[in-house]
Simulated assay, not measured.
Amino acid sequence: MSDTSTADPRALIIGASRGLGLVLANELVRRGWQVIATARQSGGELQAAADASNGRLEVESLEMTSPKELAALNERLKGRRLDLLFVNAAIDRGDLSIAEVPTDMFTEVMVTNALSPLRALESLRGLVAPGGTVAVMSSDQGSISRNTEGGYELYKASKAALNQLMRSYATRHADDGQTKLLIDPGHNRTRLGGPDAPLTAEESIPAVVDVLEAQAGAPGLQFLDRHGEVVPW
């Protein structure tokens, strides 16, 4: 059944069980969006938010690193039309120099932070309406030109790889009419960002949504921070 008859904008958020993704889902609902949000496990804060949303937030199960589960989600959502597909997923395995990183850790971080977000876009992009937006949560840690301080080499490399793969995606799909965004939300106090980060998700995500709404319909790929300013590659 198609959902194109409603005027409310619709979003699918990949990775919304906690942190930035959860706050993003709640902020979009607050602004009148219909939101589908995914989590690897049922229950928790996301389900509680859905239960309290008067039907505006629904939860889907997804392990983003599984192509089989991505295909199954795409099949379940067939006929839905999205104005926004947002992929929010990343892991960090600590502040090691690259010489100290085991091969299996390197593979895990690269698969989760770079390969899987692009697989998600490729699997689900057909749900996004012409003129809609596909966006991925990146980080200024992925900016090569800003990498002037030491630390977190694997995480930085994974975000740079994510940005490069998104550039390739945008080149391949240049004529699809969809807005493409990489978003740097700033350094937030999440499980990933740590307890000493200067921002809370509740402070940064409303600004991120302002950027998403302001950029809707813009052509090409942009790498922007939460203020809508360009982040250097």
Results as ranks from 00 to 15, higher is better:
residue 152 Y to P: 06
residue 59 V to Q: 07
residue 194 G to K: 00
residue 147 N to M: 12
residue 67 P to H: 15
residue 222 Q to P: 04
residue 134 V to Y: 03
residue 14 I to M: 00
residue 79 G to F: 05
residue 212 L to K: 01
residue 195 P to H: 04
residue 12 L to I: 00
residue 162 L to K: 14
residue 134 V to H: 03
residue 230 V to T: 12
residue 124 L to A: 06
residue 182 L to M: 11
residue 64 M to T: 15
residue 154 L to T: 10
residue 65 T to I: 08
residue 46 L to Q: 03
residue 167 R to W: 09
residue 134 V to S: 03
residue 11 A to F: 06
residue 78 K to F: 03
residue 85 L to I: 04
residue 171 T to L: 11
residue 200 T to G: 05
residue 24 L to T: 13
residue 185 P to R: 09
residue 173 H to M: 10
residue 36 I to A: 07
residue 158 S to Q: 13
residue 229 E to P: 01
residue 51 D to W: 00
residue 211 V to P: 03
residue 165 L to T: 13
residue 208 V to S: 04
residue 155 Y to D: 11
residue 120 A to I: 12
residue 99 A to G: 06
residue 228 G to H: 06
residue 124 L to H: 09
residue 39 A to Y: 04
residue 91 I to D: 06
residue 99 A to L: 10
residue 35 V to D: 05
residue 148 T to E: 15
residue 57 L to S: 09
residue 231 V to Q: 01
residue 92 D to T: 10
residue 29 V to C: 12
residue 82 L to G: 01
residue 105 M to L: 14
residue 127 L to N: 07
residue 63 E to P: 05
residue 22 L to K: 09
residue 135 A to T: 04
residue 78 K to Y: 03
residue 112 T to E: 05
residue 5 S to H: 15
residue 79 G to L: 02
residue 208 V to W: 05
residue 190 T to W: 02
